[in-house]
């Protein structure tokens, strides 16, 4: 049993790596995508909406195969890890763009007006006033999504990324102890998710107490 657990734990860095990298890609790319989605120019707005819709409507596994076997198959060489990060990162970006859009809507107009009458410049209005509030509003939803992503990163195993699910499959094939192996894998995922959930709950309640948006 110890050996089984050790094999599964060897997958943890890959699971965490795919999750963290894809989340980082999504958090950053979510901003330009959100900007497109909220653009004053109608054609850009349509483009943004179309991108978000496409990214969210196609299952992650199809995206990953499209990137790894499609694009990676003939045009550029992609490692399974990079393909998984790019695919899940783009899907996360679409999700985060919607989170940001909701957060923007939650910031009262009065905040912008106050910033205007205080003569803050456009970058100052964004970085001093809007962004900090945006981050605080986005944290709970983003954290929930991050936990979802941690679980969904298992799809990377289909490309051959040696994550927890990949290891579980390998071990179960070798040992024929499917029930034990997958129970252990489930436990590992649980141990990874719970701290993220607790941290996010603590963070949002602390921020809420302090600023009560």
């Amino acid at each position: 049993m110890n050996d089984i657990l050790m094999m599964l734990l060897a997958g943890v860095p890959w699971t965490v790596g795919v999750t963290v990298c894809a989340f980082a890609v999504g958090v950053v790319l979510g901003f330009p995508l959100c900007a497109l989605r909220m653009s004053q120019v109608p054609s850009l707005r349509v483009l943004g909406a179309a991108l978000v819709l496409t990214l969210r409507s196609i299952p992650p596994i199809v995206w990953l195969f499209f990137i790894f076997f499609g694009i990676g198959g003939g045009y550029v060489t992609l490692s399974p890890f990079v393909a998984a990060v790019v695919g899940l990162g783009l899907i996360t970006a679409a999700q985060m763009a919607e989170v940001y859009r909701g957060a923007f809507a939650a910031i009262p107009d009065g905040q912008y007006e106050a910033a205007h009458v205080l003569n803050l410049s456009a970058p100052q209005r964004f970085f001093d006033v809007v962004l900090p509030q945006l981050v605080r509003i986005s944290i709970p939803t983003a954290a929930t999504y991050a936990i979802g992503l941690l679980k969904d990163s298992a799809v990377a195993s289909t490309l051959g990324v040696a994550d927890i699910s990949f290891q579980a499959y390998q071990v179960s094939q070798q040992t024929f102890q499917g029930l034990g192996v997958y129970s252990a894998a489930a436990l590992v995922y649980l141990v990874l998710s719970v701290p993220v959930a607790l941290a996010s709950r603590w963070l949002s309640s602390t921020l809420q107490r302090r600023i009560s948006l």
């Binding site: 009262p108 009065g110 905040q111 007006e113 106050a114 001093d128 509030q133 605080r136 600023i211």
Partner: peptide, 8 residues
């Protein structure tokens, strides 16, 4: 009327 202080 609504103060509009920066809450953060």
């Amino acid at each position: 009327q609504s103060f509009n202080l920066f809450p953060h």
